[in-house]
Every structure is written in structure tokens, then in C-alpha cells.
Amino acid sequence: MLSYQHIYHAGNLADVHKHSVLAWMLDYLTRKDKPVSYIETHGGRALYDLSADEALKTGEAAQGIARVKDWFPSNHVYMRCLQQTHELHGENAYPGSPMIAVQTLRDNDVLTVAELHPAEHNALELALPTAKVHRADGFAMAHSILPPTPRRGLMLIDPSFEVKEDYATIPGHIKKYARAWNVGIIVLWYPILTSGAHSNMLKALEKDHPTALRHEVRFPPARPGHGMVGSGLFVINPPFGLAEQAANLKTRFDQLK
């Protein structure tokens, strides 16, 4: 299925959660001179216009980044990415995770991103001219390149969960990824749903990876009847200090009404 386009949800509270934590982790990795690999399995288009009709239709950005910018100091790496995006593309532009990676990493780091949707893939190629961009199934792409060179690095798995079987198959993929790349930081983003569709997946992941960091935040639904009421990150080999950063962010989310 190829109907999902993130422009309807770009800049929402789940993005604030995911992207602020991702930016912090990438900044952490670049504190050492050694090069890193960044891999993303479901890249989207990397750059979003929050004034587009699709974004305005859902209003999720208005309930998201537009509402909570003051959570982060101006020197936070996430804020620096937002500012750089605004300077280059206008005040209504928002960086997806591949763009945050480009803005945070260095010339000697290696970025590899997959996106299967044809229109999203074309936009991704235009947005990331220095990255290795694949029009491919992201899960299969990751299997084909792990372990990467350089070995130090991070992989973000950020599917739309449009394919409901993903909840059942993701633990198996991640178990193989972690075996192939035992030093890599492997990050799964998942929605917290009123249906509980994510619950069995999390049980399987925690059984396979008992030392991983599971970090979840809750927030009001973006609109009446919307089934997503939170955002989760499951992080294998979490970098030092991430648990504290995540706890501080959760405090902010807990204050939302």
C-alpha cells in the first residue's frame, strides 16, 4: 500500500517527540571525530510545507510544533535544525528526519535512506542530493546493508504502520538487525493507539531486547475521534544521557491539556 503521505501529519506532536530526540542522538554521535552511518527505512519527502492544504486540513502542526516551540532553548539542536530550515526554505517549512540528519551530520558521515512511494521518493532525492536514496522497501534495504560502513551509527525505523502486518513483523526484522549490527543504535518509532494495536509488538521487542530504552509520551488526540494519543521510541543501545533527556521531554508532554 502506497497511499500514506506524511505532509498531513508533519510537525505534529509525535514529530516533536521523535525529531527532538533524534536530533539529540545525532548531535551526541558527532561529538567524536569518528564518522557515523545514518540509515532510515521510511524517509518520506524530508521537507514539508506546513502551509500546504494537506497540513492545514488536519491541523496537526498547529497542535504540534507551532504550539510547543518554547519547550526548547534556542541552542537545542532541534531548534537549530528548525531555524536552518526556515532560513533556507521559509518560515512554513518543516524538516523531516532525513533533513534533520543532513543538517546535523558531517561531510564524512554516510546517509542512506529508503522510500517506496514514487512521489515521496522523487521529493526525497531532490531534498537530499548528498545522501544515498533508494526507492525500495525500507525493511529489505536495511537487511541488505547491515552492518554498514562505518560501523558506528544509528538507524531510524519510522514506518507509517499503514500495513497493519507491520506490528507483527517488525520484532523479527529488528531482532535480525540487532544481530547483524550489534554496535548500532537502532530506533523504532511507533504510535500509541487507543486500539492497543502496538501492545503485542512492544511485548515481543522487550522480550528480545531487555536492555533497550522504551520512551513514550502521551498527548490529547489531534481531533475528535483520532486514534493516536501518544508517541513511542524503542531504542536499542541508547546513548549515554538519553534516558535523562527523554525524561525531561516527557515532563513537558505531561503538562499538555
Rank of each mutant, 00 (worst) to 15 (best):
G43P: 11
G44S: 08
L47P: 09
L47I: 11
Y48S: 05
D49K: 00
L50K: 01
L50R: 01
S51I: 05
S51E: 15
A55I: 08
A55Y: 07
K57T: 02
G59V: 12
G59M: 10
G64N: 06
G64P: 06
G64M: 03
I65M: 06
A66N: 12
A66F: 14
R67A: 15
R67K: 15
K69N: 12
D70W: 01
D70R: 04
W71Y: 00
F72T: 00
F72H: 00
P73T: 06
S74D: 14
N75C: 02
N75V: 04
Y78I: 00
Y78W: 08
M79N: 05
R80S: 06
R80W: 03
C81V: 02
L82Q: 02
L82V: 03
Q83A: 13
Q84D: 13
T85K: 08
T85N: 06
T85L: 04
T85R: 07
H86I: 02
L88N: 10
L88R: 14
L88K: 13
H89T: 05
N92F: 14
A93R: 13
Y94G: 11
Y94M: 04
Y94H: 05
P95H: 07
P95Y: 12
G96A: 11
G96H: 09
S97K: 06
S97T: 09
P98L: 07
M99R: 13
I100E: 02
I100P: 05
A101W: 04
A101C: 08
A101I: 03
V102F: 03
V102P: 03
Q103A: 02
L105S: 04
L105V: 05
L105F: 09
L105Y: 06
R106H: 12
D107Q: 15
D107S: 15
D107V: 14
N108V: 14
N108L: 15
D109L: 11
D109T: 14
V110Q: 14
T112K: 11
T112L: 13
V113I: 15
V113K: 01
V113N: 05
A114L: 10
A114I: 13
A114Q: 11
E115W: 10
L116I: 09
L116K: 08
H117R: 06
H117V: 12
H117C: 09
A119I: 13
A119W: 08
E120V: 01
N122L: 14
A123H: 11
